[in-house]
Design a protein around this nucleic acid. Sequence first.
DNA 1: TTGAAAGCGCTAACAA
DNA 2: TTGTTAGCGCTTTCAA
Lengths: 343, 343
Amino acid sequence: MERRPTITDVARHAGVSKGLVSLALNDRPGVNADTRARIRSAADDIGWRPNAAARSLTSRRTSALGLVVTRDPSIIETDPFFAAFIAGLEAVLSERGQVLVLSVVPDADAEERTYRTLAGDGRVDGFIITDLRRADPRVALVAELGSVAVTLGEPDVPSPFPAVRREYEHGIDDLVHYLADLGHTRIAHVAGNDDMLHGHARREQFERTAEALGVRAVVTPTDFSPEAGASATEDLLGTDPRDRPTAIVYGNDPMAIAGMAVAQRLGFRVPDDVSISGLDGSQIGRHVYPALTTLDNDPAEWGRVVAATLLDLVDGKDPVDRTLTPARLIVRGSTGAPLRNPA
Amino acid sequence: MERRPTITDVARHAGVSKGLVSLALNDRPGVNADTRARIRSAADDIGWRPNAAARSLTSRRTSALGLVVTRDPSIIETDPFFAAFIAGLEAVLSERGQVLVLSVVPDADAEERTYRTLAGDGRVDGFIITDLRRADPRVALVAELGSVAVTLGEPDVPSPFPAVRREYEHGIDDLVHYLADLGHTRIAHVAGNDDMLHGHARREQFERTAEALGVRAVVTPTDFSPEAGASATEDLLGTDPRDRPTAIVYGNDPMAIAGMAVAQRLGFRVPDDVSISGLDGSQIGRHVYPALTTLDNDPAEWGRVVAATLLDLVDGKDPVDRTLTPARLIVRGSTGAPLRNPA
DNA sequence: TTGAAAGCGCTAACAA
DNA sequence: TTGTTAGCGCTTTCAA
């Protein structure tokens, strides 16, 4: 097996010193243009690529970003966010010669261990913190580890790190208004994990708007899993018809899909007997019947902006918060006016 | 900002040479038990962790595995396989101190570039090759790059690498038998990408079994996207009732869900007017109405076995192919006997 | 069983 | 503008 060419091989081929090769190939100033070109073609000729480990050892940069996803294995599969989010990250990372180190861990203990390992072993230059929780320990942990991060959303703890956020309040406001305008007076919210900041904020906004409109609101917190969405729906629809909600807003699309299935199995027509809405968007929501009303999110946009923000931070630029375009209400067939006489 | 402790710090604390620290902490023989214990506690005291780059430079091991996923961004989001697959990989990797470098790329060009970058820069010790295609160039590419890989399934090109496979043929056979036994005589298959080996193999097995049973089979190849599943379904159900299939088997669950929605929108009852089956399993399939008949796959099991196989290979053990438990038919509400007089 | 020294491939001083 | 020389933090000889 032939040895991979090193910078010394390039230097020999180009008839220069390896120090100069390093300068030339890293686009540093102070190299004669001809020499630079000669070095470059020598490198191409022998197919040289800088070794990441060697470079990292001196530059103290790994050119890698860490994403640690903490989700129960059964929930991660149905979460429509991550795949597109990662594709968005990747679009920026590959362009800038960076890689993504991904971990999927089952619980908070494994999560902390993974952060410590990734930072302690010097494997990544920074972290992407998703699914912020209340009093999230990860912000302080990353700081303690001497690393940096970007958070998706604004943490409720002091954070030295830039945040990327999307305005969701108006979207929820629009959604509840839209349902109230259709004539719904009892609207349930099968909320996501209330310990997660985004789940919590959406629930609060839902309650605020419902109260402002004089709509009767019932909130059931869950864990974002379709199972939980299904069982919450059974409870809601099993109540006395006079108390029963005529519209249900779910914390994410998979729960909404599961809830819609329960409603249909119990003989409720959607949307005539009960209107169903997701939150957070998804591709599959367009393809169920009836198609799911939801609030759009654009996971790929999240990914692109988060990656760019974190790379700038790692490059020593001043951290700047970024705000994405607000979530927009997408009305599809799963919501409509409530029928006077339910089946 | 305080400097991270190095092996020299540990050596000083323990009063030994750094060479000995290396031997002791890597469980190499020839170190006095007391000394080893002393070194270990010194390392713990000052919180030392070996730097991955430095270690990689001498050991020529990165302790990282590469996974390059080539999917159109719109399809990756709905694919139920990857999230759980990655969680399965991770379960093994974290236990063995390895990390996963993940890339999501849009097309074959970006794919090749990514393999070259990851291997050329010495960022990973080996690759995980999913979604094998016909005459897949990646097997030769990885070999050319001097790296190693594990393939999910058996490539149709000569491969020096171990393969992990799951027996799918019997499951498909069972599924078609099951449908034929219910009385279906016209069964369509909305197949996945026919350029992908698993999609192709499943289609062939479907056709073989259908022919053996004297069932009329119609096959539509697609790209695995829910959109394609939906439009294929419109075509199939728009035909003359005497030609119309009474059962449709989709290449994956998202397509089946989209197809079921189309059927329902067109006024077909599922399963009375048309039976719907997925393939490949998914969590969300349990939570649509009616729940989706499918063939189970266990992405997490794939992940665990693939990771273990690749790590063994990287460790220099002889490559051994592994075969997972066969895919099993899971009958749910979306399939049933065809009604004599369709609506 | 331990220490000393060399070197992995690169970057970054500093000289020339 | 270019060459020389030290390291970065670790593993691995080779001596002692």
